[in-house]
Design a protein around this nucleic acid. Structure first.
Lengths: 161, 161
DNA sequence: ATGCGTGCAAATAGTTTGCATTCAC
DNA sequence: GTGAATGCAAACTATTTGCACGCAT
C-alpha cells in the first residue's frame, strides 16, 4: 500500500512517532495497516475538537471522499484505538461519546453546559491525588477522567445582555 | 392521589426531605406529582447501586408490578430529575448511562474495568482544586464528575490465580 | 374542567454484525 | 495465496416521540 501520509502538509515529527506506534501495534497483533486506519489516525491527530464517530466520519467523507470510508470502519477503528489506549473517549450529557487522541499529553475537561465547548486543563495536584486514592483503595489504576461542568465566560457574557 | 410512600418500611427523615423537595420542584414548574414519579424517586433512593434506565425499570416492574410502569416514563422521569439536578448520570465504557441520586452527599467514582463495580470516594483536596480551576478559567462551575478506572482488589486477586 | 402524565407502539439514533469482495501481507 | 479489513445493508440496542386515554390539580 502506498503511504499517503507523505503528502500531508500537517505531518510532524510527533505525528510520525504516533504513526510508527500505530504500525507497531498493528504488527504485534497481526493486524493490517490500511489506508482507512491511517487517515482515521491522521484526522484525529489534526482535529482540534473532540470528535464523535459521526463527525469523524463526515470529516473523512469530505477530506478523503475518494476512499468512501464506511461508518462501520470508523467505529471499528475507534474501538481498536481505544482498546489499545491510543485514543480516549469522553461521554457526557445527552450526546454520545466523543473521542480524542490520547497521545497528546494528559488533561482533564471543562465542559460548557450551554454551548458544549470543551476546554482542556491539567492540574498536577489532582493527578497526584488520584493516584494516591487509587492506591489507598487497593485499585490498580489504569486511567481516569474528570469533567467540570459549568458555563463558560462567553456564555455568561451573552446571558448578561 | 394516595401517598403510597406511607407504607415504605424504608421511609426515613432523609427520604421525606427528598420527597418534599421533589414535590416543591414539581409544583414550581406546574408539573404533577404522580405515583410513577414517586416510586421512581423511592427506588433510586433505596438502591445501593447505580441504575440504568433499563435496570430501574426492572426493579419497578418487580416491586410495583401493579402499576405497570412503562420504560418511557422511566426515561422521562430520569431526564426530569437530571435536569433539576436531583439525580446525576454517569456514563462509561461500552455500557449506557447509570443514574444515582444526587441528594446523597457528593462523591466521585472508582470503576473496575473488569467487573464494572463502582466504588465511591470523596476527597476534599480534589473538590477544592476543582473550584479553583473553574474560577481561574472564568467558568461558572455547576457540577463535576470524576472517574478513576482500574482493576479492583478482588479482580486483581482473581487474576493472580 | 383542564391539561399534564401515562402506557403503548412506532419512530429515531447510535452502534454492531454478517457477508461477499478487496487488499495487505 | 491467505486471512484480515472493508463497505454495505440488515440487525440490534438505547432512547425519544405521537397519540388516545386517565388522572392530578
Amino acid at each position: 500500500m502506498s503511504d499517503i501520509s507523505t503528502n500531508f502538509s500537517e505531518r510532524t515529527v510527533e505525528y510520525n512517532k504516533l504513526l510508527e506506534d500505530f504500525k507497531k501495534l498493528l504488527k504485534k497483533n497481526n493486524l493490517k495497516f490500511t489506508i482507512q486506519r491511517e487517515v482515521i489516525l491522521e484526522s484525529l491527530y489534526n482535529s482540534n475538537e473532540h470528535l464523535t464517530p459521526e463527525s469523524l466520519h463526515q470529516v473523512l467523507q469530505k477530506k478523503y471522499s475518494e476512499l468512501n470510508i464506511g461508518i462501520a470502519t470508523v467505529y471499528r477503528t475507534l474501538s481498536l484505538l481505544e482498546d489499545s489506549k491510543m485514543v480516549t473517549s469522553l461521554s457526557f450529557g445527552a450526546q454520545g461519546k466523543k473521542y480524542e487522541l490520547g497521545a497528546k499529553n494528559h488533561h482533564d475537561h471543562l465542559i460548557c453546559t450551554r454551548c458544549s465547548k470543551i476546554t482542556e486543563f491539567v492540574d498536577e495536584q489532582i493527578e497526584a491525588r488520584q493516584h494516591k486514592i487509587a492506591d489507598e483503595l487497593g485499585f490498580k489504576m489504569q486511567d481516569h477522567s474528570m469533567q467540570i461542568y459549568g458555563i463558560c465566560k462567553e456564555c455568561q457574557e451573552k446571558e448578561n445582555k
